[in-house]
Design a protein around this nucleic acid. Structure first.
Length: 272
DNA sequence: AGCCAGGGTCTGC
DNA sequence: GCAGACCATGGC
């Protein structure tokens, strides 16, 4: 991997195992939109980004080295050796097929609060509708960051809302959970920064204190929001994987990287 | 029309 | 500890 600035873009070359479309649209993040010209637009950490891929080259549009190195390098998990991880997982034949089918998925390192809130919204819901609810949440309560994009609303804002005020985003029964989570985070009953330093098990127990957060939402938050690549979210699709492929449990090669294995298997079974 | 969706809570055994 | 009802909404 190497990168350099060119005009107002950052060019990333020879990025191992990086399929941009799969990474942004495999059910781990909900705010990236693809336009006709193949450019993906979105926002994270309060910054807008347009990004595209042609062959092995990733172009970060209208940004600079400072933002690239302080935000996007981390967000796209570019320091992790996915080639090594994939080779390890290929010891299992199901994972070998899954990796062949969706090679280049990376686990994004998203913001803890946005991840937590997004996956509370995800419960008993489908991906297109999750995206719609989150769009309306950001438009209604986030800050305008230009180009028709809005930041993800901070806990303080959502903590001050009533379920009635949240009704227009049409989150249904999840509205009260979002508010409870925001209040706990804002009042520091749940310390998201502190969770960063806890072992996986204790971090999960902290998240489970939030109403509307069960094991699955907690595991998603750990995996996508706290960079815990051994977290293993089990939704209806992964249940099907476990029932169909691994009735005796996950293979040994997934040890300590179960979350990444999960992402390949999840996307594989949903698209095959 | 009825089933399903990146589930969780609450109640009743 | 575990099964079952219930929860809002909209895509298919």
């Amino acid at each position: 991997m190497n990168y350099y600035a060119f005009d107002n873009d950052i060019i990333l070359e020879n990025a191992d195992c990086f399929n941009l479309a799969l990474t942004l649209d495999c059910g781990q993040a909900f705010r990236w939109k693809k336009s006709e010209n193949g450019v993906w637009s979105g926002a994270a950490f309060g910054k807008r980004l347009d990004i595209s891929q042609t062959d092995g080259r990733i172009i970060f549009h209208n940004t600079d080295l400072s933002d690239f190195e302080s935000v996007w390098l981390n967000y796209f998990d570019l320091d992790r050796d996915y080639a090594l991880i994939c080779n390890t997982l290929r010891a299992d034949e199901n994972l070998d097929r899954a990796i062949n089918a969706c090679f280049g998925i990376r686990i994004l390192r998203q913001e803890p609060w946005e991840t937590l809130c997004s996956f509370i919204i995800s419960q008993n819901n489908n991906i297109p509708r999750i995206k719609g609810i989150i769009d309306r949440l950001c438009e209604s309560f986030g800050e305008d960051i230009g180009g028709g994009f809005y930041s993800f609303p901070v806990p303080e804002i959502i903590a001050s809302l009533t379920p009635d005020e949240l009704a227009p985003i049409r989150a249904g029964f999840r509205a009260k959970y979002i508010i409870d989570a925001a209040q706990k985070v804002f009042l520091n009953e749940i310390n998201l920064d502190g969770i960063k330093n806890l072992p996986d098990e204790q971090a999960r127990d902290e998240l489970l204190k939030i109403k509307g957060v069960g094991v699955k939402v907690a595991e998603c938050t750990l995996l996508y929001g706290f960079n815990r690549i051994n977290a293993f979210p089990v939704d209806v699709w992964v249940k099907r994987v476990m029932y169909g492929m691994y009735p005796g449990g996950l293979p040994e090669c997934t040890e300590n990287i179960r979350g990444i294995a999960q992402q390949y298997l999840f996307h594989y079974i949903r698209t095959s």
